[in-house]
């Protein structure tokens, strides 16, 4: 079995299995925990909890004044690499073919040139995020293995994908195998590291929205 066969076959299959099992396990572990009922009387005129939760989710998508430049930079940079990753994953032709093979779903792809530019911009934003984490005294204090590992497993597929498409550094088959293996590592790490925030963001923003909405506050 070649490295590419291994990457496309058992590596990716096991990674997907671990990804799905991990996600379900984390979700079940969270929602099976107790949750105290809030007995306080809502402020008169307060919206329903579901409405406040939805508002809370939307409100935390952007900052209100008066926060400083570094905060805005981190926010904009975060949006750049999140949107960039989404464009790469869902806009690149071979990715759409792969998803089609798994799910039967398909949609038009973006030109390869666009994907390449987006990949470079995404890599630059991820690099900027790392530089900020390594140079800011606050971020250095907060950061641990989970933070750096999550950065690594997110950046590696973008970098290896770009190298594979550009045929840089090794044979195409080898580069593709390394790219797929990097995705396998990403999938395995996803449920157990902080990448799981992709799911938790819906939970935490919503519960905070509901908490404050009950009090008649929109923050």
């Amino acid at each position: 079995m070649s490295l590419l066969d291994f990457a496309r076959g058992p590596a990716l299959e096991y990674a997907f299995a671990i990804f799905l099992f991990g996600i379900l396990w984390r979700i079940a572990s969270l929602f099976l925990l107790p949750r105290a009922k809030d007995r306080s009387v809502p402020r008169p005129g307060a919206p329903a909890a579901a409405v406040s939760a939805a508002r809370g989710f939307v409100r935390h998508m952007w900052l209100r004044p008066p926060y400083g430049q570094s905060t805005v930079f981190a926010l904009v940079n975060g949006y750049i690499f999140h949107v960039g990753l989404a464009i790469i994953v869902f806009g690149f032709g071979p990715h759409i073919l792969f998803i089609n093979g798994l799910t039967g779903l398909s949609w038009p792809n973006l030109p390869s040139g666009v994907i390449s530019v987006v990949s470079v911009v995404t890599l630059a934003a991820l690099a900027a995020a790392l530089v900020r984490r390594l140079t800011s005294p606050v971020l250095r204090l907060l950061s641990g293995f989970n933070d750096y590992m999550s950065w690594l497993v997110t950046t590696a597929p973008v970098l290896t994908g770009l190298l594979a498409v550009s045929h840089l550094g090794a044979k195409y088959e080898t580069l593709l195998a390394v790219h797929i293996l990097s995705i396998a590592v990403f999938l395995i790490w996803f449920p157990f590291g902080k990448l799981f925030h992709a799911f938790l963001v819906f939970v935490t923003r919503s519960q905070t929205g509901a908490f404050y909405g009950r009090r008649g506050v929109q923050i």
């Binding site: 975060g78 971020l139 907060l142 938790l200 939970v203």
Partner: peptide, 9 residues
């Protein structure tokens, strides 16, 4: 607790 990104904002 699980959601904190350690972003420092």
């Amino acid at each position: 607790l699980e959601a904190c990104l350690h972003c420092g904002q």
